[in-house]
Design a binder for these strands. Structure first.
Lengths: 216, 216
DNA sequence: ATGTTCATGTAAAACGTTACATGATTAA
DNA sequence: TTAATCATGTAACGTTTTACATGAACAT
């Protein structure tokens, strides 16, 4: 029925997925992204509203304008049969990918070039982020009306397990990282490295040319 | 010294970071993204080569063309003092963000609309993905020449802890998910839901209008 | 013979983020 | 009266992905 093979799980497709749970306005779709999808796919109004408009153009959803005195119409979106088919198809054909961009880890990777205070700050922010995520997941569960479905249940527990492990690691190893960095800074730059003002001594194998050469 | 406040940790900045470890070609920078950065920031040639060119234009890196018979020059990039300053500045001012796009979880969230075989496939792919990630991390550690720095050490262990937890969860709860879905499909759609061909009965509170209304 | 690694780049398209622009209602 | 919630959208911008285009060296 549906044409395209693997369009990926973009915001457009996710909106369709939200609407399989029932009708909703763009604003309500956003709530979904902030609660149920919080730990695996964020999206802002800037991508949701255009996505819904596109879906309406393509006949995958219908729009019903609800008049409200003064203000622009409130628009209620509802998925069509074609929309459900398209979504089912997307579920069946999408090759799942995982994309992570963690600026926390980028920063901590280069901890040697940061002040200790900054490293401590970053660790705190990272811990706060994970606590917030766990909070969202817990509140989402409490606020649910009726039992949570099997699929959502899995993703919820998965999120808790992973973010829990992440938080535990930061709390356990964070202080150790700070101590290790502090020790390194007390001592002279360690054996091998000479003057830091002399660029001619800078040719040591620092690691850039040290990649995996082995193949098992 | 550096002008811009929070440009974010884009590929451009990451390349600069790689070059603080020593000179490298674009190809070698890519290796970095595939090994050391594998678990927190991927990038392809299509973003790395242009990024290096931009950095060269801005004077943050220098380029040395190494002639090779026939083929186009091999270009060795080296960070400049301005480049190091810019990178240090980026480390100090970037507000760390975390972006996750997990199509695995999107798919599993909507497990009710997939065949059991497909769900099983997705679970297997997810497990395979985490094993591969753990592999990369382990191989990266073994292949290292000399001890791994304190910062990289932290991110490496963090990756192992998190991916390990994720893998464990999929392996533990994956079969349970499949069983639960199988049970649901044996039985009639459960109490409350009536005929599936009648749209007039479709107005039950399925969840779309059931968001967190509470505020603690 | 065939495939992988090394090695570089461009151009176009897709996608998402941010900032802008507006405005009523309700709770503190 | 101040802030938050509800509610919608557009335009510009920036980033990333994908596809294209080339070619030698080396291992199987």
């Amino acid at each position: 029925m549906a044409a395209k093979a693997d369009g990926g799980m973009d915001v457009r497709t996710l909106c369709l997925g939200v609407l399989t749970h029932g009708e909703a306005t763009g604003y309500e779709v956003k709530q979904y992204f902030e609660n149920a999808f919080a730990h695996f796919h964020a999206a802002g109004f800037g991508s949701i509203y255009p996505a819904l408009a596109t879906l309406a153009d393509e006949g995958l959803v219908t729009v019903t304008g609800v008049e409200r005195d003064g203000r622009p119409d409130k628009k209620v979106y509802r998925i069509t049969a074609a929309g459900e088919a398209a979504f089912t198809d997307a579920l069946a054909t999408t090759r799942p990918r995982q994309k992570v961009r963690s600026e926390f880890l980028v920063l901590l990777f280069f901890a040697r070039m940061m002040t200790l205070d900054r490293v401590e700050d970053v660790l705190k922010m990272k811990a706060a982020f994970y606590r917030q995520m766990l909070d969202i997941l817990n509140r989402h569960e409490e606020a649910a009306c009726g039992p949570i479905g099997t699929g959502p249940r899995f993703t919820l527990d998965f999120g808790r397990a992973v973010y829990g492990a992440a938080l535990a690691h930061v709390e356990r190893e964070g202080p150790a990282l700070l101590e290790a960095l502090a020790r390194e800074r007390e001592q002279p730059p360690a054996p091998g490295a000479a003057a830091e003002t002399d660029p001619s001594t800078d040719d040591g194998p620092t690691g850039a040319d040290c990649h995996s050469r082995d193949r098992s």
